[in-house]
Amino acid sequence: MANNSTDLPVFDTSVPRADDVSDATKEMVSEMASAADYFELLKPRVMSLVVFTTLIGMIMAPTGADGGVHPVVAFTALLLIALGAGASGALNMWYDADIDANMERTRTRPIPSGRVSKDSALGFGLTLSAGSVMCLGVFVNWLSAGLLAFTIFFYAVVYTVWLKRHTAQNIVIGGAAGAFPPVVGWAAATGTVDVLPVLMFAIIFFWTPPHFWALALLKNKDYTENNIPMMPVVAGSKNTRFQILAYSLVMAGFAALPALLGHAGLFYALFSTALSAVFVAMSFWLFIAPDARQAAASKALFAYSILYLFLLFAGFPADKLIGI
């Protein structure tokens, strides 16, 4: 350790691990954290998808006779829903710190890399969870607050604690947590829930397995070594690839329903059909791909699945704008 001008010891911020250490170490770890480390606990990339789908839910909600929700209230709702989703991400990182430390994809996260202590992450997640739900209830409405609370509970407890380490259906059931944001956004704007946000929920719900299993196929070694029963670990590659294709078909069906049920117009019908056709084709290619091409096909499907969801949901307001 090198001394600085004040002759106080300079701690190597990369050395101490945040789990299973003394109180003094925990205190030092929490003092080493930067604001960016805490922001990282919120899983900003996941949060961006949450913000986007919530926004679409709010935009698509009917405005009613009073002109709809005020922009300031809408912005506040969006911010609080994003914070609530981020809080559940922090709680997930707190609980999963042990496996995160052993996985290549996650070992640089704030807790396993020793930048934030587990206790700090837990406090941060719980405070943000309670704060976002309470503020959403007080400033927007209690239906959206209740749905946000349920979403946080579902992700942090049902998925992270109960499902993830115990069943291969973890992603299937846990996917509901990621599917709630457009429903919460709609509820924030209207105080009610209708058919369209439920369809949006279903699209994300059935999109999640093919999206995540495409990644799980690539990270199978990590999940196997950590005894996480992801579908490829439990059922094998071929069975997983078949299920990806099956879920893709179901997802494509639900993606078509808004137009078929009259909640979206011709533009959305054509746009969603084209997007879903590519999704199903890529899933089919992954299913039949020879061993040497499977990694590339998985990677391509994972990347396209993210683009698909963004474009599909962007299709809702675009359809509304075009009006055909």
Partner: peptide, 9 residues
């Protein structure tokens, strides 16, 4: 694991 002992400075 490296641990800090006592009161951190």
């Amino acid at each position: 694991k490296e641990e800090f002992e006592g009161t951190p400075e």
